[in-house]
Design a binder for these strands. Structure first.
Lengths: 108, 108
DNA sequence: CTGAAATGCAACACTGAGGTTGCAAGTCAG
DNA sequence: CTGACTTGCAACCTCAGTGTTGCATTTCAG
């Protein structure tokens, strides 16, 4: 846990196709880095790095299970992000509407 | 318009601090690339590139206004993204719950 | 104990994203 | 018309992200 990841950090973590491939798998079933490497067309080391990024962003949890470490996608963080983005989106549109109204009343 | 931007593309567009700086400004008031360059600590060219990315992602609209091009943040795309992320997040947690239930019934 | 399988660590290569500078080309104001 | 301002285009630089390979280390299975 390195404090709360910032909004750009969260988005950056989700801004990579390979990481979505990983997340999609982990969303279906929890599995280890080695297991993911067997299924995806990248090396285990690459997967580990991606998992680190996803972990930093709080998008996956890890749990040691015997000799392997099993990862699972964590939906709650994604939901929290979604909520925040939604709020921001609404704020923008509100501003836009307000400006548009102002422009109309100022025109002619 | 290059078809609908993919989910990783959208997130990647939002995965940069400078672009959020730009979006925040454009969410408050519409302005040109030159105007943004005056306010933000990066060159106009850098801003233009970012605006291109944001435009590709459908996060900003542009409108020629005399000799300048005025950009504005577009909330609807952000709301759409938020909705999609929310759906995915829920799906993950549902899976997790199902797996956990299964594990519990299988244990001891 | 021994071997197979998993993680951990490190060095390295390559591409592209983000940024800069410089100059040409439109376009409005007076 | 002229000057000031804005956009458009292009070359260039730098570094972090993505990926690789190789080897050491831990850990379970039999």
């Amino acid at each position: 846990m390195t404090a709360t990841p910032t909004l750009p950090e969260m988005c950056a973590a989700l801004g990579d196709q390979t990481r979505w491939d990983i997340l999609t798998r982990l969303g279906q079933e929890a599995m280890s880095a080695s297991a993911l490497a067997r299924v995806l067309p990248v090396s285990r080391q690459a997967i580990v790095k991606h998992l680190d990024v996803l972990s930093e962003a709080g998008l996956v949890t890890s749990e040691r299970r015997g000799r392997e470490i099993v990862y699972a996608a964590l939906g709650s963080r994604l939901n929290a992000l979604a909520h925040e983005l939604d709020r921001i989106g609404n704020a923008w549109d509100t501003r836009l509407r307000a400006l548009k109204d102002l422009a109309e009343s100022a025109d002619e």
